[in-house]
């Protein structure tokens, strides 16, 4: 079940930024935090199915580009109206400069 999928190179994501990663018919958002850790969540905002990777990362918050709904991308917790449903998060590991997600 829970296989590890290569998403990108570690240096494709700037610090305190996010990119979109599509796999099969699913889409994910992969984050690099200001302290250089990597995280992954579902790619679409729980409010209106907007790609979060077009949004702004500030510290540990991703803000949806359309309605400014906010989530903590490390935990998936919704942090501000209109977002009220948490995001799913996925384990991430970085090996030999590659970022892998366990998307199960």
């Amino acid at each position: 079940m829970s296989e590890w999928i290569e998403a990108c190179s570690a240096d494709e994501i700037d610090e305190e930024d996010v990119i979109r990663f599509d796999h099969g018919n699913r889409t994910f958002a992969v984050y690099r935090s200001p302290d250089n850790e990597y995280f992954a969540t579902d790619g679409l905002c729980t409010h209106e199915r907007v790609h979060l990777a077009d949004g702004l990362v500030m510290d540990d918050i991703i803000e949806c580009p359309k309605h400014n709904g906010r989530f903590n991308y490390k935990t998936g917790a919704a942090r501000g109206a209109p977002a009220c449903v948490n995001l799913s998060t996925y384990p991430v590991r970085v090996e030999a400069g590659k970022v892998y997600l366990q998307i199960g």
Partner: peptide, 11 residues
């Protein structure tokens, strides 16, 4: 296209 300018405008 899409929300490609969203981040810059938000900043």
């Amino acid at each position: 296209p899409g929300n490609s300018v969203a981040r810059e405008v938000r900043l």
